[in-house]
Design a protein around this nucleic acid. Structure first.
Lengths: 205, 205
DNA sequence: CGCTAGATAGAGCGTTCGTTCTAGAGAGGT
DNA sequence: ACCTCTCTAGAACGAACGCTCTATCTAGCG
């Protein structure tokens, strides 16, 4: 048997990578759904990509595809939240920080040949009618990201209301600009968004 | 030819509505893919919703699902472009016009119980790898919308570069805010977006 | 009436879907 | 040794998928 997972083999569990089976499944799900969406991604494709068998997938995620998708969204949530946190804490000026985030997102998108858009959006879109768990996970992700931006603005002396509302627009504009950049295969929308957001934030001083 | 059904049955062609078969199919496709996405929508479901048979669907759209989706995107494109055009030409101040558009979008989204997001985004997301026609139709839709905003700004005396860049952010921010509003089931993101966009436009005077 | 072309009708193709199920492998406890 | 529990393995199921196919219907024209 290739692996009996973390408990048994310790840190070096996975066939290809050094990750446990469960983690490999989550990452494969996140990656695939980011590119192909929820409906466009099959569980068998996930199990193949993760180098795990169907049995393992349903062992770790008895809730099936929906549970898998919700977990994948939380994975993408954490990943972007960390990137956002680093960018914000590393720069005293929030306007500059947002600009840097936009540039980072643009660079990542281009590096994937315009394939890796926002994993939360891609995974949750189209599931509104029949998968409330997924919708909730997506809503929580956006909320967390907004919270990071809001706290930064609060720490910089913005009023509670201004900080909250600006956080909304910062995240939403980045989201929309990433979508457009992806479909146009051009990073300019994101760079423009960064500059405009910096300007908008600056207009509150 | 688009349809001979009108010729045959006269103005009251469709079973349910007064539309020709082809038009009913396009509208059903647009409506369903707006809610369920490209992969989440089946051709048989479309034919049932449109009160047309499978044979008719493939008669009018021999390119199959992809052709159908591209046509549906163009339908959504035209629809929003008209709404945008009306909102822009009815108001002298572009900032006020954008605010009104945001409110309109919010009202529409709420009226559909948060189900009808942007049809272009919902239909095109996740098709990047295997359906360039769809991607192109989506890119053209965004481009047209930006063009309308840009022309309005130009007519109001903005510089060519400012108008072009502002048009990008107006459309992108509305797009992102609509996504967030949909997943949060709350129109506030769109209303905030409208106010911030008005402020951003105003900051160029 | 026959002829033609556009449009409708839906059975059926092969494939893939998400999921279930049984069987067995491997490590730990006693 | 044995049992137990976790995890791996993949065959198999019914349903749905996109699409093809043949057959039929209607309208217009001679």
């Amino acid at each position: 048997m290739k692996t009996t997972s973390e408990q048994h083999d310790g840190p070096a569990a996975g066939p290809g990578s050094g990750l446990g089976t469960r983690e490999r499944i989550v990452r494969a799900t996140a990656r695939l759904m980011q590119r192909q969406g929820y409906e466009g991604t099959g569980i068998k494709q996930i199990s193949k990509e993760a180098e795990a068998t169907l049995g393992s997938v349903y062992h770790f995620f008895p809730g099936g595809k929906q549970e898998l998708a919700a977990e994948a969204i939380r994975h993408g949530d954490r990943e972007f939240a960390e990137m956002l946190h680093r960018a914000l804490e590393g720069r005293p000026d929030p306007a500059e920080a947002v600009l840097a985030v936009a540039q980072d997102v643009a660079a990542g998108l281009r590096a994937s040949d315009w394939l890796d858009g926002c994993p939360v959006t891609a995974t949750s879109l189209g599931t509104a009618t029949h998968a409330p768990d997924i919708q909730r996970a997506a809503a929580e992700a956006f909320e967390r990201w907004r919270g990071l931006v809001r706290d930064k603005l609060l720490a910089c002396g913005f009023s509670a209301q201004d900080a909250r509302e600006l956080a909304h627009t910062v995240i939403n504009t980045l989201e929309g600009a990433e979508l457009t950049a992806q479909v146009a295969r051009d990073e300019e929308p994101l760079l423009i968004a960064g500059r405009h957001l910096a300007r908008l934030i600056g207009s509150y001083r």
